[in-house]
């Protein structure tokens, strides 16, 4: 298994390099820079040019890339034009928020999707199954941002059950129980909104896997041994059906990142997604490249994680 994981990590390195080049080049190709919008128009354009040259704006791209990636490796993403402070510092606050939001979303997604998927697959083509499938298709068809807005309006503003923005009540001492609860309280509604929509593919996937697995011969073998239906599900069908869900995990993370960009903006939640959108509109490139790179790295890591999980649960992979 170690050999497998090591090999898998080695494959990841070129993936990350290609990703970073891609992001860097794309960022360079975007029109305008921080100076074109932010600087007092009365300043002499020649002076602006000078600053650009100073900043290395006209150096060949690979040189710029080299100096940038050199910084990235040591944890230095440069300074934000907007905040006038190191990108690393801005991101480090946000990344924690986003991490917790994603984690809670993921947990909620699986908490909702797995029981529903199992019920749907086990009792396929019954009313229960049709209701669950109906819900999944609804989730599939509903745009996340509209659904999130509705949730915010109903539970945040109308009913007032949840806070409508921020990640924590101001004035609480970090580290206290109240602080922790406040954090959790703030991320619950955005996480739930995202989870309710994100469940559809896990539910449908799990359902189809179970419907497939229960027709397999080894299920008959178990039945012929005298195993009860419940035991057959617990011992034989579930583990085999959950395998592809584990394989799906990496993709789930990618979806989550996409979703968090909407969610954080709608709920005014200070995370990476919100930061990305703000920075894009303000052309704060060093932040944009940094967040995009981290998002990309998270997807690659997610894929790695799902492969490793898979290699642990599936003996057929373990051997190789």
């Amino acid at each position: 298994m170690w050999k497998f994981s090591l090999r898998r990590i080695m494959i990841m390195i070129p993936q990350l390099i290609v990703l970073s080049i891609f992001i860097f080049v794309l960022a360079k190709m975007m029109p305008g820079d921080a100076l074109s919008g932010q600087i007092d128009p009365n300043i002499d354009p020649e002076r602006i040019e000078e600053i650009r040259v100073q900043m290395g704006w006209y150096d060949p791209w690979h040189e710029q890339y080299a100096s940038w990636i050199g910084g990235v490796v040591t944890g230095d993403f440069g300074d934000s034009f907007r905040f006038k402070m190191p990108v690393t510092e801005i991101i480090s606050q946000r990344i924690v928020n986003s991490f917790w939001l994603s984690l809670v979303t993921l947990i909620l997604t699986y908490l909702i999707a797995i029981p529903l998927g199992i019920t749907s697959g086990r009792y396929n083509d019954t009313l229960r199954d049709q209701l669950i499938q109906g819900y999944s298709y609804l989730g599939f068809a509903t745009p996340l941002f509209i659904f999130a807005l509705v949730m915010l309006w109903v539970f945040g503003f109308k009913l007032g059950w949840f806070p409508t923005s921020g990640s924590v009540t101001p004035g609480l001492e970090p580290g206290t129980f109240d602080y922790f609860m406040s954090k959790f309280y703030h991320l619950l509604l955005p996480a739930l909104s995202m989870a309710l929509i994100a469940t559809y593919n896990t539910i449908l996937y799990l359902r189809n896997e179970i419907v497939d697995t229960k027709q397999k011969d080894f299920v008959l073998t178990a039945k012929a041994k005298g195993a009860s239906e419940t035991r057959i599900y617990n011992q034989h069908i579930l583990r085999n059906s959950l395998l592809p869900i584990a394989a799906f995990f990496g993709y789930e993370i990618t979806l989550l990142i996409g979703g968090s960009i909407f969610i954080e903006n709608i709920f005014g939640y200070p995370g990476m997604g919100q930061l990305l959108v703000e920075s894009v509109t303000l052309r704060d490139y060093s932040v944009v490249t940094a967040t995009t790179l981290l998002f990309g790295a998270a997807s690659v890591l997610g894929a790695l994680l799902s492969d490793i999980i898979l290699s642990i649960v599936d003996p057929r992979i373990r051997i190789k």
Partner: peptide, 10 residues
Amino acid sequence: DPLTALNPLM
């Protein structure tokens, strides 16, 4: 079919 009659994960 002995290839499919056994649970691959057990």
